[in-house]
Amino acid sequence: MSTETDTSDMTEGSEPAFGRVSRSKDVAFRWLTLAAALLGIVALAALLANVAVDAVGWLTWDFLTGMPSFSNPYDAGFYPAIVGSIALMLLIALITFPLGVGAAIYLEEYASDGYLTRFIQLNIANLAGVPSVVYGLLGLGLFVGLLNLGFGTLLVAGFTVSLLILPIVIISAQEAIRSVPDSQRQASYGMGATKWQTIRNVILPRAMPGILTGTILALGRAIGETAPLIMIGAPTAVFGVPNSLFSKVSAMPMQIFTWADRPEMEFQYGVVAAGVVTLLVILLSINSIAILIRNRYQRRT
C-alpha cells in the first residue's frame, strides 16, 4: 500500500525530492568553486597588471645589463642579480634533483616498512613545512660556521636553499614512484630483470613526469626565497657576476627587497616593478623549459 502511494506521488518525467535537492547542491557547489577560482585569478591578474604598468619606462635594456645603484634610480641595473639567480637555480637543481630522486627511490623500492623508515618519512613531511628562515640559520651554522665556506658565497647559498626544497622534491618523487602500477614491476621481474634494471627501465621513465612536476614547483619556490640568503650573509647587491662557487652572489629577490627599502618613490615603484617583472619572466621561462622536458618524457611513455 505504501509503495503504491509513493509511486503515485511521482508523475511521469518527475524526480524524487532527494534528487532535486542533490542537484541543487551540486549546481551551487560548482558555482561556488568557480567563483573561488575566478577570485584568485582576477586578483592575481590585477596585481600583475598593476606591476606591469609601473614597470613601463623602467624595464629597458640598460636596466637589464647595468650595474645596481642605490643613489640614482635612473642608473639602477639588474644584471648581476639576474646572473646570480640563474647560477643559483642551476646549482640548486644539480644538488636537489639527484639527492631527492635517490632518496625517494631508496624509501620506496629498497627500505623495509619498519619503524625507522616511518620515522624518516614523518620527519621529511615535517621538514617540508619548516619556515625558510630556519634553513637560513641551519646554513649559517653548518656551511658558514662549521665548514667555513664563506659568507654569502654561491656554494653556501646553493646548499642552503637546496636543503629548503629537498623535502618537497623527495615527497613529490615518492608519490610519482608510488603511482607506477605494481603489475609493471612484477612483469619486469618475471622477464628476468634485476631490481636496478626495473627501476631504470620501468619505474623511472613512468614516474619522471610526476618527479619533474614536483621539482618545477620546488624550484619556483626557491627562486623567490630571500630569508635564507639574508641569514647566510648574502650581499644585498654585487657589482660583478660570480665566476666561481666561492664568489659572492646576490639574487633578484634580495635586490628587489633592497630597492623597495629606499626612500625615493622612483625606487619603490618604477625600479621595483621592473625587477618584479624581470623575475616573473625568468621564472616562467625556467618553468616552461622544465615543462617541455616533462612533456617529452610523457610522450615517450
Results as ranks from 00 to 15, higher is better:
residue 120 I to M: 10
residue 229 L to T: 08
residue 4 E to F: 14
residue 273 A to C: 04
residue 155 L to Q: 01
residue 108 E to F: 03
residue 271 V to H: 13
residue 36 A to W: 10
residue 57 G to S: 08
residue 108 E to M: 14
residue 22 S to H: 11
residue 151 F to P: 00
residue 13 G to E: 07
residue 141 G to K: 04
residue 188 S to R: 04
residue 91 L to E: 09
residue 234 A to Y: 01
residue 178 R to D: 08
residue 54 D to A: 15
residue 251 A to C: 06
residue 174 Q to N: 08
residue 292 L to Q: 09
residue 240 G to S: 13
residue 40 G to Q: 03
residue 210 G to F: 10
residue 71 S to G: 13
residue 284 L to Y: 04
residue 258 T to V: 08
residue 198 T to N: 13
residue 259 W to E: 12
residue 281 V to A: 13
residue 216 I to K: 13
residue 254 M to I: 15
residue 196 W to D: 13
residue 283 L to D: 04
residue 112 S to Y: 06
residue 170 I to A: 12
residue 215 T to N: 02
residue 193 A to Y: 06
residue 280 L to W: 00
residue 148 N to E: 14
residue 108 E to S: 11
residue 181 P to A: 08
residue 197 Q to C: 05
residue 55 A to Q: 10
residue 37 A to E: 11
residue 16 P to G: 05
residue 128 A to E: 08
residue 87 A to Q: 13
residue 245 L to D: 02
residue 164 L to Y: 02
residue 57 G to Q: 10
residue 11 T to W: 10
residue 248 K to A: 11
residue 90 L to M: 13
residue 177 I to K: 10
residue 106 Y to I: 14
residue 166 L to K: 07
residue 59 L to G: 06
residue 231 M to S: 10
residue 252 M to E: 07
residue 250 S to W: 08
residue 296 R to I: 10
residue 157 A to D: 02
residue 222 A to N: 09
residue 114 G to L: 07
residue 166 L to D: 11
residue 97 F to Y: 03
residue 286 I to E: 01
residue 90 L to C: 14
residue 190 G to D: 10
residue 207 A to L: 09
residue 38 L to G: 04
residue 284 L to A: 06
residue 61 W to C: 05
residue 44 L to A: 03
residue 30 R to E: 12
residue 107 L to E: 12
residue 63 F to T: 12
residue 268 Q to E: 04
residue 89 M to T: 15
residue 150 G to T: 07
residue 259 W to G: 13
residue 40 G to A: 03
residue 71 S to I: 15
residue 24 S to H: 13
residue 259 W to S: 06
residue 28 A to V: 03
residue 184 Q to V: 00
residue 164 L to N: 01
residue 296 R to N: 06
residue 24 S to D: 11
residue 227 A to I: 02
residue 297 Y to C: 01
residue 220 G to E: 08
residue 47 L to T: 06
residue 37 A to S: 12
residue 260 A to K: 10
residue 32 L to Y: 14
residue 282 I to Q: 01
residue 162 S to D: 07
residue 237 A to V: 04
residue 203 I to K: 08
residue 84 G to D: 06
residue 42 V to K: 02
residue 100 G to S: 06
residue 105 I to D: 05
residue 234 A to K: 00
residue 75 D to R: 09
residue 86 I to W: 06
residue 127 L to V: 03
residue 142 L to V: 15
residue 261 D to Y: 02
residue 250 S to C: 08
residue 182 D to A: 05
residue 219 L to W: 11
residue 272 V to A: 05
residue 19 G to K: 11
residue 269 Y to D: 05
residue 268 Q to V: 05
residue 1 M to R: 15
residue 248 K to C: 02
residue 193 A to S: 15
residue 31 W to M: 11
residue 194 T to D: 00
residue 83 V to C: 12
residue 95 I to P: 05
residue 134 V to W: 09
residue 85 S to N: 07
residue 111 A to R: 08
residue 185 R to F: 13
